[in-house]
Amino acid sequence: MEMIIAKWNYLVVVMLMMIGLFTVMSRQNLVKKLIGLTLFQTAVFLFYISLAKVDGGTAPIIVHNAVNQDVLYSNPLPHVLILTAIVVGVATTALGLALVLRINDAFGSIEEDQILAAKNSDYGRNDDNKGDKA
């Protein structure tokens, strides 16, 4: 029990990550896959921020008070890394969505099995080539 409370945040993060991964792998819908990726990503952010936490610490913004000079701060480095990751994550989501929109234009579907079926038929192949030339 002690063990589980000490590692609680990490264990829950693993659970959230696996729900996200399962969404990405099991669903055929491309938008659903992107959403699963977002779930996974946010779980990884939580993992990093959990590592940065110091018990009894406060946000890493320096306070000046004469009374108490030895304030404990959380580790600022993972915070910075995750700030960058959040912005990059949105950029990749936008790029993924643009790809999904183009796939929908070319194949008329965002379901993976239908896209594969359309790709193997004549219609899909011609349509795809036309898209490439334009």
């Binding site: 938008v31 992107l34 959403i35 977002t38 946010t42 952010f45 939580l46 921020i49 959990s50 940065a52 936490k53 110091v54 610490g57 406060t58 946000a59 890493p60 913004i61 959380s74 993972p78 915070h79 995750i82 700030l83 959040i86 912005v87 994550g89 949105v90 989501t93 936008a94 969505l97």
Partner: peptide
């Protein structure tokens, strides 16, 4: 909200604005 609880206020700001805001709007 979790990030605020874990003392990462800057990350919480960014996540609320960019993660919850912009990516929802894009989707």
């Amino acid at each position: 909200a979790m990030f605020v609880n874990l003392d990462a206020v800057d990350v919480a700001f960014t996540e609320a604005a960019v993660g919850a805001g912009i990516s929802t709007v894009l989707l």
